[in-house]
Simulated scan of single mutants.
Amino acid sequence: MNRRQFLAGAGLAGATVLAGCGSLSSQSTRAPPLVEDRPDATYRPTHAEGMGMAGMAQAGEYMVGLSYSFPHRFWTVTGTTAEKVDIRSEDSVHLMATVWDPETEMVLPVSAGLSITVERDGETVADKSPWPMISQNMGFHYGDNYALDGDGVYQLSVRVNGMGERRLGAFEGRFGEAGEATVEFDFARNTRDQLSFEEFPETQGERAAVDLMNMDMVPTSQVPEVSALPGTVLGTDKGSDGVYAVTWLQDAGFLAESESYLAVSARTPYNRVPLPMMSLDGTVESDGETVFDDALTAAVHSELGYHYGAIVETTAQEPSVGIDVVAPPQVSRHEGYETAFLTTPSFSFGGN
């Protein structure tokens, strides 16, 4: 299969901090030294931070939960390169937004992103689009470090852009429009400093991950177990530590009689967090004939979760499938994921 040239998108999260102060006391204690000789894979980080809720509201068809923690380092990704973002002295919180469908409670990675404007007493404190990112304890979310103007009540206005991903099944015809909401966030540095901060000196660097948080108000982002995927699972494989499960559907409600559906569910090991914003190519062969050779489309479906797929004009029962990863997940990473999911492997599945 010929790989298509991938041009990494710029401007996913351009940021402009307009005002603010409020440095983090004892900041160095919140950033233990990184693990030496980190593996090119998921690993147990040096620490895990607790979080507090800043607010929750409905934004059009979306539900949005806003939470916060200590400012922390993370890594942005362009193409196959991860670049570290350090904590600044003026950063007050790491602000996080989770977007989900209120009917199914499925977390929605929206490639078009969202923006957050922070205001206090009618004045803009910060206006930026947080990065799409993954973390071991929170899964997929949008986040960035924000500088606030001391303790007080802030208005957080969120705009979630309409989804460009294909919406299938229960999601068909939904989430095409943007949604907006505003919540009040009563920030106190003392409350932030009482959030949990657990270090792992004995296990940091091991090939493992910390558990996802169990949050009462906000769902966590997980794709189904491989055994729970609909259709005929043609196989699973690993590349750059990501797990790729391929399934073949022939009786889905969105298909015509002459059509089948190829779906690739990409997820992290250990916690099954979806790996969004990738570029994948696929080929499908049946009886020695190529019936599909094209890019796969990011999509959401209530049973498949977030995945990459294509409608194929064939009724073959178990075809031969090839998958090329053209670009790895273009999402930022918290510590423990920054060295994983950065290569472009190829896989073959199915066939008799």
Score class of each variant (00 low, 15 high):
residue 268 T to S: 15
residue 235 G to T: 09
residue 290 T to N: 11
residue 289 E to N: 12
residue 240 S to C: 02
residue 247 T to L: 06
residue 307 H to P: 07
residue 252 A to M: 05
residue 287 D to C: 06
residue 254 F to W: 13
residue 309 G to R: 01
residue 268 T to M: 04
residue 259 E to F: 07
residue 231 G to E: 08
residue 218 V to F: 13
residue 247 T to M: 01
residue 224 P to D: 11
residue 251 D to R: 04
residue 253 G to I: 03
residue 258 S to K: 11
residue 241 D to L: 01
residue 297 T to L: 14
residue 227 S to Y: 00
residue 247 T to N: 02
residue 214 N to H: 10
residue 256 A to T: 00
residue 188 A to D: 12
residue 304 L to I: 15
residue 212 L to Q: 02
residue 280 L to K: 07
residue 258 S to H: 10
residue 299 A to D: 00
residue 259 E to D: 13
residue 257 E to M: 07
residue 281 D to Q: 13
residue 284 V to T: 01
residue 204 Q to T: 00
residue 285 E to F: 08
residue 295 A to W: 03
residue 244 Y to L: 01
residue 206 E to T: 11
residue 223 V to C: 07
residue 213 M to C: 05
residue 216 D to T: 14
residue 278 M to V: 12
residue 219 P to D: 08
residue 272 R to D: 09
residue 287 D to F: 10
residue 216 D to N: 13
residue 234 L to M: 03
residue 246 V to S: 05
residue 193 D to P: 04
residue 287 D to K: 12
residue 235 G to Q: 00
residue 209 A to L: 10
residue 207 R to F: 04
residue 305 G to Q: 06
residue 274 P to C: 03
residue 291 V to W: 05
residue 263 A to C: 07
residue 298 A to I: 02
residue 233 V to T: 15
residue 199 E to S: 13
residue 231 G to W: 08
residue 228 A to G: 03
residue 272 R to L: 12
residue 205 G to T: 10
residue 222 Q to M: 12
residue 208 A to L: 11
residue 208 A to N: 15
residue 254 F to V: 07
residue 306 Y to C: 05
residue 255 L to E: 09
residue 305 G to Y: 05
residue 239 G to H: 02
residue 205 G to L: 09
residue 228 A to T: 08
residue 238 K to Q: 06
residue 192 R to W: 13
residue 230 P to N: 11
residue 190 N to E: 15
residue 251 D to S: 08
residue 302 S to N: 12
residue 277 M to V: 07
residue 235 G to D: 10
residue 255 L to M: 04
residue 199 E to G: 10
residue 236 T to K: 05
residue 253 G to T: 06
residue 260 S to A: 15
residue 189 R to S: 13
residue 245 A to E: 02
residue 305 G to M: 06
residue 282 G to A: 14
residue 256 A to K: 08
residue 293 D to P: 09
residue 295 A to F: 09
residue 251 D to H: 00
residue 264 V to T: 03
residue 241 D to H: 09
residue 299 A to H: 00
residue 239 G to P: 03
residue 311 I to Y: 08
residue 230 P to T: 08
residue 246 V to Q: 01
residue 241 D to E: 03
residue 245 A to L: 04
residue 193 D to K: 08
residue 237 D to A: 15
residue 283 T to E: 15
residue 257 E to H: 03
